[in-house]
């Protein structure tokens, strides 16, 4: 039921002619849709269980693009208007970063021509990512996780969902947790309220600069745990070190295709060197695959590192 609600929550941003088609999708498909992709002169596409599915004009889906409903540039522009609720000025900063926060914790990525000042023109496509909270998804591995946690996985593998549940569990088990969210991925905070259950003892920062957010949390919220998504810059590493030295554990994530790619990601190597992370969780690319949990020593002993 909640899964259907998550899908229906994002329909306000879908142009009318597509809304009718998407509303006609079977309930089972609606509940499993992860993304809705609208691209100029290309088929309306869904991501279901990590795989693309094309939507036909009668609301059915197919793996083949023939006969699929074709979106046009008016659809993408209308979609953008609906996403920003006719208020581009209120979403300028988000647009400059290529996304728009939506109701219910969903997020839309925008693709097109970006000018030097970050404004977009000629939108070519929009990807609406449907955020779902899977309460309890971290319970099976929670007891195996010690110290700082790094969640690694491919895009769409569920890193953010896992972090969200870890935050909830840590918070409900007596830890003070601060969530530092740049795009609202973890908290989906809207007007100061998160639609997700992040636990009883969680404070959330919605801040563009993660490093600054971590510093602010450390100085003012005295957290036991700081959680943020997608570590990616040296300034964030510095903030993580500060957090580690200050006694706060971190929970973070990074994109990675497979374990072997740790070598290729300088930021991950540096993060592991800091020893702010004790446990690394590898999420499988496909849903239902095996989740691997490794201590940092194991990784360092592995030939891959």
């Amino acid at each position: 039921m909640e899964d259907l609600a998550a899908f229906e929550n994002c329909l306000y941003a879908i142009p009318q002619r597509m809304k009718e088609i998407l509303s006609a999708l079977p309930s089972g498909t609606k509940a499993e849709v992860q993304e809705i992709r609208i691209r100029n002169n290309l088929p309306l596409c869904l991501t279901v269980k990590g795989k693309p599915l094309f939507v036909l004009a009668d609301g059915q889906t197919s793996v083949f693009k023939d006969m699929a409903f074709i979106c046009n540039s008016e659809d993408t522009q209308e979609c953008l208007r609906l996403l920003v609720k006719h208020s581009v000025f209120a979403h300028t900063d988000e647009i400059k970063n290529g996304f728009i926060r939506m109701n219910g914790g969903n997020r839309a990525g925008i693709c097109g021509t970006f000018s030097a000042d970050g404004m977009i023109s000629n939108i070519s496509g929009i990807n609406i990512r449907i955020a779902r909270q899977i309460i309890g998804c971290a319970e099976g591995i929670y007891d195996k996780l010690i110290g700082g946690i790094l969640v690694l996985g491919a895009p769409g593998s569920g890193k953010t969902t896992l972090i969200r549940d870890l935050v909830r569990l840590k918070s409900n088990r007596g830890k003070r947790v601060s969530v530092v969210d740049t795009r609202g991925e973890i908290s989906a905070m809207n007007y100061g309220v998160s639609p997700f259950d992040l636990g009883a003892n969680t404070d959330t920062y919605l801040i563009e600069n993660k490093a600054l957010g971590i510093e602010m949390a450390l100085r003012t919220m005295f957290p036991d745990v700081i959680a943020f998504d997608e570590i990616g810059s040296i300034s964030e590493l510095v903030a993580v070190k500060m957090s580690f030295n200050g006694g706060a554990e971190i929970i973070t994530s990074a994109h990675i295709g497979n374990e072997m790619q740790i070598n290729d990601r300088e930021i991950i190597k540096k993060l592991l060197d800091l020893r702010a992370v004790e446990t690394v969780v590898f999420l499988p690319k496909n849903i239902g695959g095996e989740i691997k949990i490794k201590r940092i020593e194991e990784i360092k002993n592995d030939s891959i590192f």
């Binding site: 208007r81 920003v84 609720k85 006719h86 208020s87 581009v88 000025f89 209120a90 404004m119």
Partner: peptide, 10 residues
Amino acid sequence: QLGTSDKKGE
């Protein structure tokens, strides 16, 4: 036309 540009433009 309201809401189609940034704050300055508006």
